[in-house]
Simulated assay, not measured.
Amino acid sequence: MDNRKLSVLSGILIFIATVALSWYIVSGDEEEDEASQENDGAVVLMMEYAPQTIQSTIRFTGRVVPFDQYDIYAEITGIYEGSDKPFKTGTSFNKGEVLLRMNDDEEQQDLEAARYEFAALISQILPDISIDYSAHYDKWQAYLDELDATDSLQPLPEVDDRQFRMFLNRENVYSRFSSIRRQEVRLQKYTIRAPYDGVVTDHAINPGALVQNGQQLGQFTGVENLEIEASIPASKARYISVGDEVTVQTEGYNSDQYSAVISRKNAVIDPGTQSLKVYMEISGSEFEPGNYLEGEIMGQSFDEAFKVHKDILVRDNELFVVENDRSKLQTVELLASAGDSMIVTGLEPGTKIIDEFRNAAFEDAKVTEREDQ
């Protein structure tokens, strides 16, 4: 029994001795590391300030919009009959095809009656023309012979004779002619044709409906000519000009880059966002109205400048530099923002900049440069 107690006691003493020895070894290593760090300083990543000419960029996110968009309104009153194709959202039409056709039977009849009356008027004055203005008789007789009440009126014969012109005015020839031409223009408004190749992007009417003057009937959008609409900060807008080339890309489709050209630039600043609209021409079958694109526009060029990451800036306009192996806060002049970076100036060429702010977070800390991995 005594031997057993002795064995247990020996084990406890050995365990205590082992723990004490381990603590001594670890403490010695920590003191050695602390002494080493105190002698060598914090190991940080540095970069050399090498000023050069830097071209700033203006990043933007824009939306693809159609250049050609036509809101369709009725200019007459009538019954909607139909079109060359169903006038429904998503239907494509070629230029010149009938988008909408209203019933124009009554207008056609009124117009034909007016043309017959005009032919009768010319017939009545031809005898007087043959007697008093015989030099013009053949032209007006030929005009009457070619007049067709079912077709548009042809321009009247030219008249250089002042007396003959006054005679025609007294007989209301010109006023009746202008009235009929106005009716012809009105008749054309019963049929609405596609102004370009495109697609119906909204419709608000079905066949058989009564169309009222001024009623919106739908929207027709061109699909060939597209442009990008983007908002640019007003402070940077002065560096952008019509004709500047732009690089854009879209996320979700692919990572390919495309070229665009600034075609228009608004002159009025939005007071709410302090930005203005810029429009860029772009071509590519990959895009559809509504797509969002990201891009860059070349901005102002800065001489004797340098680009640093925003994370190393302290209080917005200071950063740590190295003087005599110690960190020191230095004020710099901010020139422009460039995404995650900032374009700065104001340091002496060759100055070492600490590129790791958190490893040198206090003034006069001893630092040592390490290699970037």
Rank of each mutant, 00 (worst) to 15 (best):
A50H: 07
I269Q: 03
Q249C: 07
N317A: 13
D128V: 12
A35V: 10
T150M: 14
E363A: 08
E48I: 11
I343M: 03
E371R: 01
V344N: 08
A120P: 00
M342C: 07
R264C: 08
T368R: 14
S134Y: 06
L45Q: 03
G339P: 02
L187T: 14
V159Q: 08
I12W: 07
I131E: 12
D270G: 03
Q373P: 03
I353C: 02
S231C: 10
Y24A: 03
G295H: 00
T53R: 02
F287Q: 02
G78P: 03
E184P: 00
G299C: 03
R193L: 10
R4M: 11
V246Y: 10
I180C: 00
I58H: 00
E348M: 14
G208S: 00
D33A: 15
P51G: 05
K265H: 00
D71L: 15
V98I: 12
M46L: 04
Y258S: 03
E318C: 04
Q215H: 07
G78T: 08
L147K: 01
S130D: 08
F67A: 03
T221E: 14
E286H: 13
P127Q: 07
P66M: 08
I282D: 01
E369Q: 12
Y239E: 12
A135I: 14
R193F: 11
S327A: 06
E286W: 08
G339N: 08
V223G: 03
M166W: 10
D71Q: 15
Q183A: 12
F302W: 05
T201D: 10
E117F: 05
N254W: 07
E146T: 07
A17M: 07
I297M: 11
M46P: 00
Q330C: 01
G96N: 05
T191H: 05
I180Y: 05
L334C: 02
R59Q: 10
A209T: 13
D84W: 09
P233K: 12
L276E: 08
L144H: 06
A267T: 15
Q373C: 09
K95H: 13
G243I: 09
E38I: 04
F60E: 04
A361N: 10
D68N: 13
I343V: 04
N39E: 12
A305C: 06
E30V: 13
E107G: 07
F302R: 13
Y80F: 15
E32W: 04
A267G: 15
G290K: 01
Q212I: 04
L217G: 00
A119Q: 09
L187Y: 09
K277M: 06
D340H: 13
K328A: 08
Q257F: 14
A119Y: 15
Y24M: 02
S341L: 10
I72M: 14
A361L: 11
A194F: 09
P349F: 15
S327V: 02
F167M: 06
D202G: 04
E369R: 11
G252K: 15
K328V: 01
Q141A: 06
D2S: 11
E117Q: 06
D145G: 00
R170C: 02
D138S: 11
P233T: 09
I205E: 10
R264L: 11
T191R: 12
D355N: 06
G284C: 01
E251G: 14
